[in-house]
Design a protein around this nucleic acid. Structure first.
Ligand code: FES
Ligand code: FES
Lengths: 132, 132
DNA sequence: GTATATACGACAATTTTAATCGTATATAAA
DNA sequence: TTTATATACGATTAAAATTGTCGTATATAC
């Protein structure tokens, strides 16, 4: 539990790779995939999503690839996580309402506090801090 | 991602229930299960584990049940989580070594920092703060 | 034209989590 | 001493989430 997904892991690896790319030149999905041992097609899909999210920019065709588009110091880790995986919360009770199985849940408000702490923590960290 | 498990959720609910039990009288697994809509047998197993962990005390036989044994303000949320679910980490790379698929992982040290932040956060919170 | 790259959706495999089942033991109460 | 209720624990199954694959379309440098 309390794990990040491979998807986020791969996204971070790719971002950091691009960040270190000289002169912000493009890196192709297959270059990155083979360097870090990531399934090529899977990485491609993740990069495509990050493109839609405006984090990176795609260049099509041969010699194409991806490069960083957004200002990473303006994006919090929380926003990044939520772009990739949706709302951040320790439990699902806050997003879907079908947890009424718990007729009288007694831990909702305590968990809310922890939840807020976690969100605060990830809000204070920028993507740049991670990738540089 | 970054979710706690039902197991932990159920454990917290049960602990809080016991905490609120007058005079620290015992509560049976089935009482708690039916009150909060938790699968009985599943809750029982969790309570048994908490008993082995020294968090609560079991009383066998009819009129039996469980009551709190440990001093909850001396137990951090981190210790509690790790008792139930094992070592706490954002990724598995720190515990098992078969992530060498990543021939040249470039995010290990950045992730370590976030990891440490998370561990610190859960270390500073006591179980009592959650259950009371 | 051809090779290489992104784009995208459908599908399958794997792993993890959640829940169930069966049986044994302890003990309070009738 | 019998019975009902409760904990104890391992094996197994079911469900859900994650991870990975495949097929096809489109763009573009050479
Ligand atoms: S409401 Fe979902 S566990 Fe409390
Ligand atoms: S080592 Fe496992 S992802 Fe970097």
């Amino acid at each position: 539990m309390l794990k990040i997904t491979r998807k986020v892991e791969y996204a971070l690896i790719a971002l950091r790779h691009m960040q270190q790319s000289p002169n912000n030149s493009v890196s192709s999905a297959s270059q990155i995939a083979s360097k870090y041992g990531i399934p090529q097609h899977l990485l491609a899909k993740i990069l495509q999503q990050m493109t839609r999210d405006g984090l990176i920019q795609a260049v099509k065709g041969p010699t194409g690839g991806y490069k960083i588009k957004a200002d990473l110091k303006k994006i919090s880790l929380k926003d990044f996580f939520e772009k990739l995986e949706g709302p951040l919360g320790l439990m699902d009770c806050y997003f879907n309402t079908d947890c009424l199985q718990m007729k009288a849940c007694n831990i909702l408000s305590p968990i809310q506090k922890i939840n807020q702490n976690m969100r605060d923590m990830f809000s204070k960290t920028t993507l740049l801090e991670i990738t540089q």
